[in-house]
Amino acid sequence: MISMALSSVSLRDLALVQAVAREGSFTGAARAMHISPSGLSHQVQKVEQALGVPLFERGGRRVVATVGGQRLLGFIEAVLGSAEHLEHAARAGDVAFGGELRLGVPSTLGPYLLPHFIEPFPQRFPGARLTISEGKPRGLLRRLHEGELDAVLAPPSVTATGLESAPLFFEPYQLLLNAAHPLAGRAAIALTELDAAEATLMAESHGNGVSDLGMAGAARPERIQDVSLESLATLVAMRGGYTLVPILAHERLGSIRNVVLAGVDAARPGRHIALYWRSATPWRDDLDRFGDLLRELARTIPGLDAATNA
């Protein structure tokens, strides 16, 4: 029988404890969980009092779990996982994903990939609703870990504990140049012919490898915070220079005034896209089928290279 003290602890309280362990900071956990730091601290103390064990060492620059806390955090994760299974089972029936797939997609991918699978999805998963959330990959993976999403499409990264992934496809980049650029009008351009100082790249979406592909010049490309691809193209149209854009977006971006598109000669920059899910998900079979669907579609979309295995 559960003690009276522990019966006052909610699943939300346990999720707050888990967030502190993940973020290593009360402030960071409070921000991630949309609660005030003082409110979060109070709830964590309530859990500690109910368990009769201090879960975290306080006072250092980074909050770390105590020896007892490390042991109990595994049980807390199991409780939260079981609660998620219970919720899914309650709405499951015979419908895939329990009736709804909450999918996170990067904002630089969603508008261009979604039209390709919005029709075949209900054909492959009758009765299941697809709900799309867009954002930056890092934020989407955090929401997946916290249970707000069921799966995420994102470039490969160092995944958090409790997440698994499977490769889907490789999407090459194309060059998008200001129409007045000296090399505009060519079908393909080598990056070694371009001055890195003229490039405008996005900090997260383009990653760090693009600047290592041999662009000419000693200066590094300008890196801006991630914006929409349309905004990035507009910047190039107004300021000059060039950028790299994923091939799925080329039709929409090519219609923007004062920019032109070109292929990349020799080097093949691009991004790999993978499907992420929680290890404890009850929808593993459904997610395997969803990954199969996306790889099948990738084989029919010009320019994409589907992964050969999951």
Rank of each mutant, 00 (worst) to 15 (best):
A160Y: 07
G24T: 05
S38C: 06
S38Y: 06
A83K: 12
V259L: 05
W277G: 01
V63Q: 08
A199M: 05
F117C: 10
D288Q: 02
G263K: 11
A92H: 07
Q49M: 15
S82T: 15
L101I: 13
L149G: 03
A89N: 12
R31T: 14
T192K: 01
Y242R: 04
T243S: 13
I35P: 06
Y112D: 00
L141A: 02
L113E: 01
A5I: 14
A190I: 12
F290Y: 11
L130I: 13
V260A: 05
S10T: 15
A196C: 12
D286R: 03
S107M: 08
G81Y: 06
I247R: 13
D292W: 02
E57P: 00
Y276W: 06
E87K: 12
R22D: 10
E251G: 04
G39V: 12
E251D: 14
L294K: 06
H116R: 07
E164M: 07
S279Y: 04
L51T: 01
L201Y: 05
R299P: 01
A267R: 08
W283A: 06
V95H: 10
G291N: 01
A249S: 15
G127M: 10
R143F: 13
G147C: 13
G59Q: 07
N258A: 10
A29S: 04
S36K: 12
N309F: 09
F169E: 03
Q18E: 15
S10V: 11
A50L: 10
S7V: 15
S231L: 13
R62E: 09
R271W: 03
M202N: 00
T27I: 13
Q123P: 04
R239Q: 03
F117R: 00
V95A: 11
N208I: 13
R289G: 11
A216I: 06
S7F: 13
H206S: 03
H145A: 14
F56C: 08
L163S: 11
G291V: 11
L194Y: 07
T308K: 05
T192G: 06
L6V: 15
G74Y: 09
A233R: 02
L153M: 07
F117S: 04
S3Q: 10
K136D: 08
G98I: 15
A197W: 05
P115A: 04
F121W: 09
I118P: 00
G209M: 02
F125T: 07
D13C: 08
S41T: 12
T27K: 01
G240S: 09
R186K: 07
G98N: 02
L175S: 06
V158C: 00
D94T: 15
H250E: 14
A15P: 00
S82P: 04
M1H: 09
L176R: 01
K46A: 11
R278S: 03
A19C: 09
V227C: 03
G209D: 07
H88E: 13
P156M: 11
H250R: 10
E193W: 07
S36R: 14
Q49I: 15
E222W: 12
